[in-house]
Amino acid sequence: MKLPVYLGMLQRAEQELASSFRTVADGHGDEPDVRATCELLASQCDEHVAAMQPLVDRYGSEPSDEPERLHAAALPHPRSGPLALLRDLQDVHLLASFVDMTWTLVGQAAAALRDEELQQVIADREAETQVQVGWLTTRMKQAAPQALVVAG
């Protein structure tokens, strides 16, 4: 069974998403909504990591055979300025979308396994991840015209 590969991948990706949200929060502190929301969402990711632990304990967490392909990278450091805000949010969006789809796929496995505990853990977290993706989209769409058309 390869579910442990995906559980390990998901847990790592949530950790990296948390770290990326914090990187953006620190780097764009002059955008107060970005700072506050990214800090909040980072703490959601922390909770997701913790909530997965009983499942990892039960199913195990195997390293992947091809980590370079399954690995979504965290943001190394933030950039600065309006364009950089857009780019940073877009990078985080990529990672959050990866997490979102991974929850979906783990959920498929949980359904096939008829594992209700696993399904319950997934349902709430997947919904939160979708809101994270939604917030990133909302904020980028708001920022894009000014950043791409007028800002110096």
């Binding site: 002059d30 955008e31 107060p32 300025g81 309006p82 769409k141 708001q142 894009a144 015209p145 000014q146 007028v150 800002a151 110096g152």
Partner: peptide
């Protein structure tokens, strides 16, 4: 109408950034 109208705090932020 491509995004919500800009709120006051963001207007002042754009002034601060010079756009």
């Amino acid at each position: 109408h491509w995004a919500p109208p800009t709120h006051a705090m963001q207007i002042f932020r754009y002034c601060e950034q010079g756009s």
